[in-house]
Amino acid sequence: MEIYALYGPSGTGKSTSALALAHRFKISAIIDDGILIFQGRKVAGQSAKYEKTTIQAVKRAIFLDESHRKEVIQALKENPIERLLILGTSQKMIKRIQDALELPTIEHFVHISDIRSSSEIKAALFERETKGRHAIPIPRLQVEQDFISRLISRVEKIILSSKKEEYGETTIVHPQFHAGQIHVSEAVLKKLVLKSCRDLPFVHEISKIKVEMSAEPVITLHLSLKLASGESIQNLSHQIQKSIYQEFLEHLNLEVGEIDLLITTVQWKMQSPVTS
């Protein structure tokens, strides 16, 4: 069995990225937060995301419970697994899982930053802190029924192979142990945009602001400018975009993916007459 490992801090999108990584390297099985997934379906274990406390979740993820550990070891032996991907927050954690499940040496370590951009990671962390969303790379129907009614948000995506065969499905859940989320309203995001433009003397008026939060924040801004003769609209637009980008990075640790500006009107400043 060839072992791959994907590691990185909690909330950076490992579970969300696991299926795509498995597809890329033709990996048929995944160990993620206490469950064994084979060919896109859970075959053994119980997800740490079902636990009520963080401590219980960690114990579940590293297979400290003997019956849980033996169940997954047995499933590993019974299924024809040639390549296995283990997810964890660090190499140390992954090696603990390897030892607990009596697996061969890990041959390939992949850090989350190797497959996700800095902006995607920051957006994933923001999503975790503000909405408490966690991903489980198994179909919605396989999540226990008592968990569905309270905690499932939505099915995130289905990964298809080149032959259009279903490769796996990711379900978004809200674990009980994730509490104390920070709420950032759309109004606050819009105020950050206003703040970033407020001190730019050439921004005359802002008529519309739209902020979309997806994989990366996308901002659409309608505004009018007041320019002196000879000033470049393109250069001033770049200054506006840079100011907004830095504001989001400083206050929310978010990298804005796209900032679209629509210049509605341009007013020209009157030049002072030259006196002799």
Rank of each mutant, 00 (worst) to 15 (best):
E165A: 12
E250L: 09
Y167R: 14
S119W: 05
S28F: 10
L221T: 02
V173T: 01
L103Y: 14
I81V: 14
Q234F: 13
G257P: 11
D65W: 03
F248V: 01
I152D: 05
P104L: 07
E186P: 04
P201N: 05
V58H: 08
I30G: 09
T12L: 10
G11L: 06
R96C: 09
K191R: 15
T89C: 10
E120Q: 15
R198H: 15
E66K: 13
G8P: 09
L19V: 02
K210W: 02
E258M: 03
K157F: 07
L200V: 08
T16M: 08
P80C: 03
E255N: 15
K269N: 06
T54G: 03
V218Q: 12
N79C: 08
R140H: 08
K95H: 13
I138P: 03
L6G: 06
D114G: 00
N79Q: 13
Y50V: 01
G34M: 05
K26C: 07
V266D: 08
K157M: 02
A215W: 09
H222G: 02
H108D: 13
K122M: 00
H174Q: 04
E82F: 07
F202Y: 04
F109G: 05
Q234D: 15
H251S: 06
E231K: 08
L21Y: 13
H251K: 08
H222F: 10
I37S: 10
A187V: 01
D65V: 03
L192I: 00
K70Y: 14
Q176W: 02
G257F: 10
Q74D: 14
M213I: 09
K190V: 00
E258P: 01
F147Q: 03
I182E: 15
Q74L: 06
A179F: 08
Y4S: 11
Y4T: 01
P201D: 11
I148W: 09
I158H: 07
A124Y: 01
I81P: 13
R41M: 01
K131V: 00
A100N: 15
L189I: 06
D65K: 11
G132F: 03
I81Y: 15
T264Y: 06
S119P: 04
K92G: 07
R133Q: 07
G11V: 02
V266A: 08
N79F: 15
V72G: 08
I30Q: 12
S67T: 04
S276D: 10
S207N: 10
I35C: 13
H111E: 12
K42R: 15
V72F: 13
G230Q: 10
E51H: 07
D114E: 15
Q234I: 12
A75I: 00
Q239D: 07
E186D: 13
I206A: 02
A18D: 11
T275Q: 14
E120G: 02
L87C: 09
D114T: 00
I159G: 04
L76Y: 05
E156F: 01
F177K: 07
K226E: 14
A61C: 12
K269T: 04
A44R: 07
E120H: 06
H68L: 02
F109C: 08
S113M: 06
E102C: 14
E247S: 08
V155T: 14
I159A: 06
F126N: 01
D99C: 03
V143N: 07
S119I: 00
T275V: 15
